[in-house]
């Protein structure tokens, strides 16, 4: 099956335009990243009794991997259920768009800003630490493997969170229910990143590669699993 890039782009661009016109959406997606920025900054700049050695054990950057997991559920939960509730879904479904194109467009429109916000927050954190923290603290926190893990895992974790959100959004009849369930559905991913950050699971290169491969497979399976859930008849008529 060939996906039409023009139709995918149409959905993607329209969503981004809506975000730009709706400040409450921007605020909603910025809340979690800001919360997750405060805790590491507090540890670095205010908790004076924390040694450089213990900081290097804390994997503060990995702790921030929760950002790409927790940012998408609000947007992904709204993506289908919200359009359905506002009556804008039916006109779109009467066009030649395939459900896979619609879902990829929606997924990208959630993933791209979520990943961008996550990267900006990491960069901000790194800049603050590099500029204002003690050199020993900075060198303990800014570790190349952690930065590479951030770069690699952000889109992979974000994409999985997006598919979980879209799955609930295609099935829920109410936007609020879809968003709540999307958030709940994404929480297990936060648990994994937290276990790594708190050294319960020891981060090694092998583990990182395995996890990345696993996430990539999960992302593809996520897309494959959500597509059949997207049933035009149920979405339009509320039947089935």
């Amino acid at each position: 099956m060939n996906l039409s890039t023009r139709r995918v782009r149409a959905i993607f661009h329209r969503e981004l335009r809506e975000y730009r016109r709706n400040r409450s959406i921007v605020v909603a997606i910025a809340i979690f990243p800001l919360i997750f920025l405060i805790q590491p900054l507090f540890v670095v700049f205010l908790a004076h009794d924390v040694s450089s050695a213990s900081l290097s054990q804390m994997h503060l950057l990995l702790y921030m991997l929760a950002i790409p997991v927790l940012t998408p559920p609000m947007l992904a939960g709204y993506a289908v259920a919200g359009e359905r509730q506002h009556g804008t879904l039916e006109p779109v479904l009467t066009t030649p768009i395939r459900r896979e194109e619609f879902l990829v467009g929606k997924a990208l429109a959630v993933l791209v800003p979520s990943a961008a916000i996550a990267y900006v927050v990491y960069a901000l954190f790194l800049a603050l630490v590099a500029l204002f923290a003690e050199p020993s603290v900075a060198s303990a926190i800014i570790q190349v493997p952690d930065i590479l893990a951030q770069v690699l895992f952000t889109p992979l974790l974000g994409a999985l969170s997006v598919w979980i959100g879209l799955a609930f959004s295609t099935r829920a009849s109410d936007v609020r229910v879809a968003q709540q369930l999307s958030l709940l559905g994404s929480l297990p991913l936060v648990l994994v990143t937290s276990l790594i950050a708190f050294n319960v699971i020891h981060a090694t290169l092998g583990l990182a590669v395995s996890l990345a491969a696993l996430l990539l497979i999960a992302d593809v399976l996520g897309w494959r699993a959500v597509s059949p859930l997207f049933d035009r008849e149920r979405l339009v008529a509320g039947s089935r």
Binding site: I11, R17, R21
Partner: peptide
């Protein structure tokens, strides 16, 4: 079923692409 935050032209652009 229009996107109310978008302009008339932007609504039509989206559907022209679809």
């Amino acid at each position: 079923g229009l996107y109310l935050r978008l302009s008339v032209a932007e609504n039509l652009e989206c559907f022209a692409d679809l």
